[in-house]
Design a protein around this nucleic acid. Sequence first.
RNA 1: GCCGGGGUGGCGGAAUGGUAGACGCAGCGGACUCAAAAUCCGCCGUGGGCGACCACGUGGGGGUUCGAGUCCCCCCCCCGGCACCA
Length: 828
Amino acid sequence: MGYDFQSIEKKWQHTWESEGTFNADADPARKKFYCLEMFPYPSGALHMGHLRNYSIGDMMTRFLWKRGFNVLHPIGFDAFGLPAENAAMKYKTPANKWTWENIEHMTEQLKHMGCSYDWRRRVETCNPDYYKWTQWIFLQFFKKGLAYRKNAPVNWCESCNTVLANEQVINDGHCWRCNTPVVKRNLEQWFLKITDYAQELLDDLDNLPGWPDRVKTMQRNWIGRSEGARLTFTEKSTGEIIETFTTRFDTIYGVTFLALAPEHPFVEKMCALSPKGDEIRAFVQKCVTQSAIERTAVGGEKEGFFTGFSAVNPVTGESVPILIANYILMDYGTGAIMGVPAHDQRDFEFARKYDIPVKVVIQPHDESLDGVTMEHAFEDDGITCNSGAFDGLPTAEAIPAMIEWGVEQGFCSREVNFRLRDWLISRQRYWGAPIPVVYCDCCGIVPVPEDELPVLLPAEVKIVEGGKSPLTEDKEWLSVPCPKCGKPGRREADTMDTFICSSWYFFRYCSAREDSAVFNVDEANYWMAVDQYIGGIEHACLHLIYARFFTKFFADLGLCNAREPFTNLLTQGMVIKDGAKMSKSLGNVVDPDEIINTYGADTARLFILFAAPPANDLDWSERGVEGANRFLNRVWRLVEENIALLSSVRERPSLPMERLSEQRMRDLKRKIHTTIRDVTRDIADEKQFNTAVARLMELLNALSSFRPETDDESALFREGVDVLLACLNPFCPHITEELWSLGGHKETLSKLPWPEVEPSALEMDSVTVVVQFNGKVREKEDFPAGLSKEELQERVFALPSVQKRLEGVEVVRVIVVPDKLVNVVVKG
RNA sequence: GCCGGGGUGGCGGAAUGGUAGACGCAGCGGACUCAAAAUCCGCCGUGGGCGACCACGUGGGGGUUCGAGUCCCCCCCCCGGCACCA
């Protein structure tokens, strides 16, 4: 029978809650630490991913309290979102009720894990007290001109019945939430101008040494900066200006066509002017109906159409044909490109298909290209040719020289383009924060005055089958007088992307009950930035970019000093079972409740932290869980079986190393203190929690076999048990608290300082020295620690086994590393 | 294609350029037991040898070094991101 974790865990959870053990208040006199895990969506119950995330965060929090920090460790719920609406339809329960029930249930689950949250700070993004401020933030964006409406081809998920931001289209054109293929629709929508911050979002990644390279690289790719020039062409018959963007300005002499996106504004004009207008329209129609995936797939069939119009190359004066091409994207650069088939593979394929000339303007170093016969484009650097005064320049010099010349001549300008697009934040859904604007026939778009916030969601809505937003059907809710002129107006029926709600919650935690402002600036400045953020890597280009954007915006509003929200980021791996991510559809889920009910929260936490380093995927193993449980039972027995002995030396100090002479006592003393040293380093510096646990298992093994006989030995044994419990406490808080109090201690272990290393206890009495011959281990021998190089070599050479090996060989060289090894290099 | 992260026993995983495989899981042998469970003790990379030992071994190939899982170069494979972005 194992120990009675059920009653122990309940007991200590009550104690921590009733005593407010982990409540934290801003205190400028104390050094702070803000430890945060990504808050959960209240889907109904915690899953293993949550259990892992919160086990890591809780362990770190408890460790940091012990290390003397004032630790803010809050939790809340990312409570708006589509699943609530789907559940409403499925179970005929209002989204509101479903969500709040889930929040209460999951709160209980988090408490059963023994998590050390400051529960006074819990936030729920669907709470009007919270989304009032989400709306307020929107209004600040609006005031600054960073929230705007535009008509654009946008991503539409036919399953979620709403638009999506670019970041939310993943896996080659699929919805991030439901994996349905995304289609394009032309709609007028609200956007946030995240592109204004593109350069800073990119640059500041260099100031985040505490972030994994993987995540920074993903964000750099996503932001996608490219430097080049904007070049102006003139259409011959109309004089229309057509602008193109290029990163290879050095290839302008090789331009043999111009290609426009089907959506390019000049296309409409050409249709009107040209006798081929109907044909052009037909071609454009064909392109537009292609799916996003077809249009953007690498190696997809390039389709073009000669418009009959032509443009003049401003550099050469040559006339080149204008085509419309399906592979040109309207929302990147200018929506038009200069075609250089000799030096761009896409242009090359296109040119060969439509018999457009290929003009070589860069020669490689090792061969000579011929535009007529070449089989693919030459895209590498080389030597410029056929380019007038620039002939002979290597690419790296040609680009800046030619741009400079183009700028002087007035037909080009330097330009930087980003792949990052503005953030589409409208959602055609009910369960989200309403966008606080009113449409008025007289005044246009009118923001709701700040003192009228929040714009409340109607509590009861009719669920509309077919996925249409219920808000569009609620005539009473929609109709509202214009805040400006008072005439009848109409509310915005779209709600905000829930990623808006989660872009600022970590600020709200700093002063969660503040009702006069979005957050208290002083408290935010005390707590922010988050010192340690923990969550899944799937948010690399979603939440983690949005949150950085919001923080920079807040800083610009003067609301906070921090320009980056998260100083250190830990992205934990997935929980795997039978070789695949745990998921309902695969049927390989393990329910956290079941594990906690069977083995206890301490066992669950310990297994999760021991089974793999946090960034790795974690292979779930029932056997491994049993192993963790076995360890805790051994710890329990160690204390229980020695309880009288431990009490008898409660007040007897453990002797310092200098006073210990017996070898087994010296060894145990050293083990106790190297354990403190190593566990501290593993948690604080390496964030290798699995090895920290391994060290504690070793300490238990040492204590189990010690068997004290004298009072001094008992006192040493007690010291070892105390250290084991104190170091294990952040991992397994309940059992360690219980054993701590069973051992006669009065204080709450959770708030006691982390044990201190006694430096003298770390000193080694003897060391095992490895004797190598030509780099191969041949002998091992114990010597007193601290021998000089000379003495160690002398004593090694005196060993009979070494003497034997030295017979008949010539010693060429000897390398001696004190306390470590002697390598004898021999010949013959 | 570009960028990032990886590749170590049967498995999860350890190793400031200095004993490869800590710790755990599984397995094997033993003790206790009428028996089982639980617990405790021992063994546990591969090949060879009765043995002391010897050879091989961290994806592959080179290199630096007295010494390389670790550093450098080339290559292979797996995972992730971006990709018709001009």
